[in-house]
Design a protein around this nucleic acid. Structure first.
Lengths: 326, 326
DNA sequence: CTGAAAGCGCTAACAA
DNA sequence: TTGTTAGCGCTTTCAG
């Protein structure tokens, strides 16, 4: 920095001002400084800068699993909102293991980022509490309401409601749901399904499953052996739904002619022509944006917690059709 | 830190030693310090630490696109190797835009991470040169050999060779390749295909395409209208191959009975039961590990550039079968 | 707009 | 095994 100042023939303080885009620098000096910096290959040292200024202008994002498009789209939303606010984004991942999540959060905490967005961690309530105490925190897809931190969640139950509404409007009455136990979001989806069915005077068929292809395959196998197999299957997520499709195809059941299939999440899979799955779309980027906005509010002082529920919407493709009771 | 020292009744230097896991601290003092730190909720400030020590113990990863499993698996490999070496990993993304890649790299450069792994950026040769000059750098899936930086690449051409070998061993002779223009890796795949075909005295059929589903769909449509349609189609990647599958299915062509289909990448798509695509697997985690190892070598002083080519392997599933010239 | 001076929270010799 | 003393590279006062 001294070198730059010398080369530009100005004081070090001025260089600092220029580097921080201060408005009170003459265009002339600014140009000289920028030129000198360029020539010398100078770039400000973020560590020193943050240390001195006491803030980092950076928000940290901790994602449980980078392979899951859910999280990467979330991060994309965060990045967009952060860019708009002139903040940088740093990502760490727990690589699907809880121990990894702890070190990933620690890295961020040690970095003293101005705030942290946590994507569906497996942390206990206490751990979350502890994190939120150290820095502004907002959790996405975490279904507990703490006073110390904000949350942004999908209205899972409403998604299930949309599915049931769609299927019943097509005339289906024997509708089965393959759930995903206690995985994040699964209980809400199941609950929404049961409520929506009951409300319509229909008997909810629920089958234990999981958020993966195998679970869908297995469940479909069982369901189709019932005396009165369902005419529509609502899987816990898209991956599970592809398992259902694979099984139905293997036993010669036509989709949607014989059985309708619905997924949840609207991942890239669902859109593939070869699958063309009706599914529930979540505005994942929006989650990231809202999370970031909440975080920025917190950073600038809000103290009361906010908990947002975001509405999903149904995407109709060719895996669902009118009931066919032949 | 002073507070911790005071509370533990020791000097600040001792606290520093404990925080850095120095072996030359008595168990007694260590316990006291740790206890005090815990009570006070103290955690070392990474900025200050790195500033003072002149090194960050962190490696940066810049990924062009987080949605692409290729990159996230790459990052996973980096994380694994870094963890083994006791280093932290910070990820930034360019969100598919070149301008984003620039700011992402700048963030990392300003952070002064000990080194950077760059995943398939769209940077020009000059930009790469400039980056490599500022910090140890290794590029993955970048097919130019610079002296200033290491590279790790998939042996794309060999993957194509494996495909041709597989198909010809099944009796196929009319094999078409849907390529992806000049997208990263595509020219090498195309070249490998042409060489392998020519070597066997077969005429290579190449159709212009891209790395997406639509391209595959479109190309398949054209190819099947030829007087002598191919009996096997080798798409540039899995996504393109799903487009092929979707079209073939829509016109009632059976796979693999009538036409065999092969992808490239072995993404999660290929493994789905509903698609079950024969494809070329790349050990993406290994890419990340090797990249990190190369980086660590650079960090500890190696100056000569290394360029590694990693061998892919064929994964046979049910989208390929013996030729059927009925 | 400049120049000087203090200090952010820590590490790294060196002494004790 | 511990304490002392300088900084690391920057920002931020503050008076000029």
């Amino acid at each position: 920095m001294d070198d730059v100042a010398a080369k530009a023939g100005v004081s070090r303080a001025l260089v600092s001002l220029v580097m921080r885009d201060s408005p009170r620098v003459s265009d002339n000096s600014r140009a000289k400084v920028l030129q000198a910096a360029q020539d010398l290959g100078y770039r400000p040292n973020a560590w020193a800068r943050n240390l001195a200024s006491g803030q980092t202008n950076t928000i940290g994002v901790m994602l449980n699993d980078l392979h899951n498009p859910y999280f990467t789209e979330l991060a994309e939303g965060v990045a967009a909102a952060a860019a708009e606010a002139g903040m940088e984004v740093l990502i760490t991942s727990g690589w699907q293991r809880e121990s990894g999540e702890h070190t990933a959060i620690d890295t961020l905490l040690n970095l003293r980022t101005d705030g942290i967005v946590v994507g569906a961690a497996r942390f206990s309530s206490e751990v979350f509490e502890e994190i939120a105490q150290q820095t502004p925190t907002v959790a996405v897809a975490y279904f507990h309401e703490h006073d110390s931190m904000d949350t942004v969640c999908n209205h899972e139950a409403h998604g299930s409601e949309l599915v049931v509404e769609h299927l019943t409007s097509l005339g289906h009455t024997r509708i089965a749901h393959i759930d995903a136990g206690n995985a994040p979001g699964a209980p809400e989806r199941r609950r929404g399904f049961m409520t929506a069915m009951t409300l319509r005077g229909l008997a909810p068929i629920v089958f234990d499953g999981d958020f993966n292809e195998h679970a869908g395959h297995h469940a479909a196998e069982q369901l189709m052996q019932l005396n009165e197999p369902p005419t529509a299957i609502f899987a816990a997520n898209d991956l599970s739904a592809t398992g259902v499709l694979a099984h139905l195809r293997s036993i010669g059941v036509r989709v949607p002619d014989d059985v309708s299939v619905v997924g949840y999440d609207d991942t890239v899979l669902a859109g593939l022509g070869a699958l063309s799955l009706t599914t529930v779309h979540q505005p994942r980027q929006l989650f990231g944006q809202r999370a970031t906005e909440l975080l920025l509010e917190r950073i600038s002082g809000r103290s009361a917690a906010k908990h947002e529920l975001i509405e999903p919407r149904l995407v109709t493709r060719s895996s669902t059709g009118p009931v066919n009771e032949s």
